[in-house]
Design a protein around this nucleic acid. Structure first.
Length: 636
RNA sequence: GCCACCUUAGCUCAGAUGGCAGAGCGGCUCACUCGUAAUGAGCAGGUCGCCGGUUCGAUUCCGGCAGGUGGCUCCA
């Protein structure tokens, strides 16, 4: 009996029934065989040594592919669990998946793991790998699996996983004397792992629920070649150099102080960057038909009770007493906007009404979540509330999408992903309203032909949202822009407009932010550019560097001329060697260094060095101003 | 909030089984007037995060707290 196997390149071939992917790989080429870790049969991941019993498509997964690496990582997680079990026989295990970069395993043991223990676990893993045992799959009935994890290898977490498992035939993998509940697939033999490293230990709640026990999670990474591990670790180090917390200090942009954990102190240079961004957006707001508003930071409790924040957001809010009445410091700007809306009568002809606000909000975030500018307790949202009629929703959401993406392009953010978040557990509004709102956002995305990830249950309490996520230097994803639909707030604040029929109608509210928070956005900008901001964003765009005192007068003249041209320019008149001043300017990541020597004074020129291209030679002052203005205008 | 780790000069970091605290950079002073990533010399700078405990003596050991970092949970 033969089966027919189709390959990814479209060719097909007949093989004897029961042949394994491994044997097929060997026949195709020894190179492929050597690099293969698993296979996909009819798009289902399978082990290399699984017999193929029917016709189907086959893709051999090698360690050169992301899927293949994931298999290697997952197998390394097993080896790690094996090592932990050998060192701590009482250990019980949660889950141990491959993740975007590497793997982890959640472990329940009584003793606290330390860095030294990681070393011991690594050593044990090394021994296990050297033995080169193979991963053997076995399919069991659910009862057999339960018996195994209740008896021979006691593990309450695996039992819990089994209890929730719907399909009736769990599989286990044995590697040496260690067996784990696992769907697979796995690498054929542990000795394919040529290089690995355990990176960190962290606490993690069982099943991600903070009501559950906290397990110890070990993160690690592995590769089929030592060089790849070295490169990965090198990249990690490089990424740390781009950390905005480090660069923010080095470039003197902002600071944090014990006196206000989670509250940013902006320094002059950081503030310039902040203002540049703000000013940029103010211009765009006009283009996109927004009016700008400003609402108070402290507002009476009654307002927050009315808006639903009291019931849904209280634990994140700060409160103050004024004249024996209780007030809250705003965590969001929407109620304020609603008050503005309600201070006038509105006709359908006024809509959409777009009110933008650089809203200064305070949120009491739990201490453990604070993280540089990414997660603070006080931040400025580039917020806006669009009040519109139901049939204007589509166009308005689409316009918001265009706006967000235009802005990201100007800041050279090209790598982001979009999520559509739906109704959370804690929410206000009827099912119908939520359905309508979710459909509206989905339709806008589909209409714009935008790929998005569905994020069920992650919407705001008042409505679903479209979010823009960007990764930081350590690959953590942060939400920046957001477009949220809200049918509830208009209800609560009894917002109305007079329609063409002369009757009163309820408008719909769209909350939207592009940067999300200016603080977080700046953090992303710094990391994205590694601190080397484009000229238009640089707090200092050029520095004048006289070679000696003889060039001071000319240098001052040049400095004034650039300043008058509207450029952010500084003068380094210190009595230091030119190499020293250049070094300082380079470390300060100043884009233009203007060196003034005898020659330049005689020729009325400027010797230009950029931090991007090095020494550019001499040019006229006006040529330099034109060049810089062009780059600023191009946002290059 | 939870888990682990960290906290020594403005910054980056050494340090001692518990006995008067160290470097480089930066700052200040002086000399040097210099051509594309660090000129030299001198001086100043510390309650060793805070509060307790053990001890003749604690920056060092123990406990608590605060702040930070990496995760978890939560979120822009």
């Amino acid at each position: 009996m033969n089966i027919n196997i189709t390959f990814p390149d479209g060719t097909d071939h007949s093989y004897q029934t029961g042949i394994t992917s491994s044997e097929i790989a060997k026949q195709i080429s020894p190179g492929l065989f050597k690099k293969s870790v698993a296979a996909k049969f009819n798009d289902q991941p399978v082990d290399l040594n699984a017999p193929l019993l029917k016709d189907g498509s086959l893709e051999i997964l090698t360690v050169d592919t992301a899927d293949g690496l994931h298999v290697l990582w997952h197998s390394t997680a097993h080896i790690m669990a094996h090592a932990v079990k050998a060192l701590y026989p009482e250990a019980q295990f949660g889950v141990g998946p491959a993740i975007e970069n590497g793997f982890y395993y959640d472990i329940d043991i009584d003793s606290k793991l330390s860095q030294d223990d990681l070393q011991r676990i690594e050593d044990e893993m090394q021994r296990i790998i050297k033995r080169g045992s193979s991963f053997v799959r076995k399919e069991l009935t659910k009862k057999e699996a339960v018996d195994f994890f209740a008896g021979q290898q006691q593990d309450k977490y695996k039992l819990e996983l089994l209890a929730d498992m719907e399909d009736g035939s769990p599989s286990i993998y044995s590697e040496g004397d260690f067996t784990d509940l696992c769907r697979g697939p796995h690498i054929p033999s542990s000795n394919m792992i040529k290089a690995f490293k355990l990176l960190s230990i962290a606490g993690a709640y069982w099943r991600g629920d903070e009501k559950n026990k906290m397990l110890q999670r070990i993160y690690g990474i592995s590769f089929p070649k030592k060089a790849q591990l070295d490169e990965y670790l090198f990249c990690l180090e490089e990424a740390k150099k781009r950390d905005h917390k480090k660069l923010g200090k080095e470039l003197d942009l902002f600071s944090f102080h014990r006196e206000g954990p989670g509250f940013v102190f902006w320094h002059p240079k950081g503030m310039r960057l902040y203002r540049t961004i703000e000013t940029y957006l103010v211009d765009k707001l006009t283009q996109y038909g927004y009016g700008e508003v400003k609402t108070p930071i402290i507002l009476n409790d009654a307002l927050w009770k009315k808006s639903g924040h009291w019931d849904n957001y209280k634990e994140n809010m700060y409160f103050v007493d004024i004249d024996e009445e209780s007030y809250a410091i705003k965590p969001m700007n929407c109620p304020g906007s609603c008050l503005i809306y309600n201070s006038n009568m509105h006709s359908y002809r006024d809509l959409p009404l777009r009110l933008a606000e650089f809203g200064n909000v305070h949120r009491h975030e739990r201490s453990g979540v604070l993280n540089g500018l990414f997660r603070v307790r006080q931040f400025t949202q580039d917020d806006a509330h669009i009040f519109c009629t139901p049939d204007q929703i589509q166009d308005e959401v689409k316009a918001c999408i265009d706006f967000v993406q235009e802005v990201y392009k100007d800041f050279q953010f090209y790598e982001y992903h979009i999520e559509l978040s739906t109704r959370p557990d804690k929410s206000i509004g009827s099912d119908e309203i939520w359905q309508q709102a979710e459909d509206a956002l989905r339709d806008a995305l589909i209409n714009k032909n935008i790929n998005y990830k569905l994020n069920p249950g992650d919407g705001a309490f008042y409505g679903p949202k479209i979010d823009y996520h960007v990764r930081d230097s350590l690959k953590r994803s942060w939400q920046l822009g957001t477009i949220q639909l809200d049918f509830s707030m208009p209800e609560k604040f009894e917002l109305e407009y007079v329609g063409s029929d002369g009757n009163k109608h309820r408008p719909v509210m769209i909350h939207r932010a592009i940067f999300g928070s200016i603080e977080r956005f700046i953090a992303q900008l710094i990391e994205h550019h590694g601190g080397r901001l484009p000229v238009w964003l640089s707090p200092i765009q050029a520095v004048v560097l006289p070679l000696s005192e003889e060039q001071l007068a000319y240098s001052h003249a040049v400095f004034s001329k650039l300043k008058d041209a509207g450029l952010h320019v500084e003068m380094d008149a210190r009595n230091e060697k030119i190499g020293y001043k250049i070094r300082e300017a380079e470390l300060g990541k100043i884009p233009y260094m203007l060196i003034m020597g005898k020659k330049e004074v005689e020729n009325k020129q400027i010797s230009v060095r950029t931090n991007k291209d090095g020494d550019l030679g001499s040019m006229e002052i006006d040529a330099l101003i034109d060049k810089m203005n062009y780059e600023i205008q191009q946002k290059a």
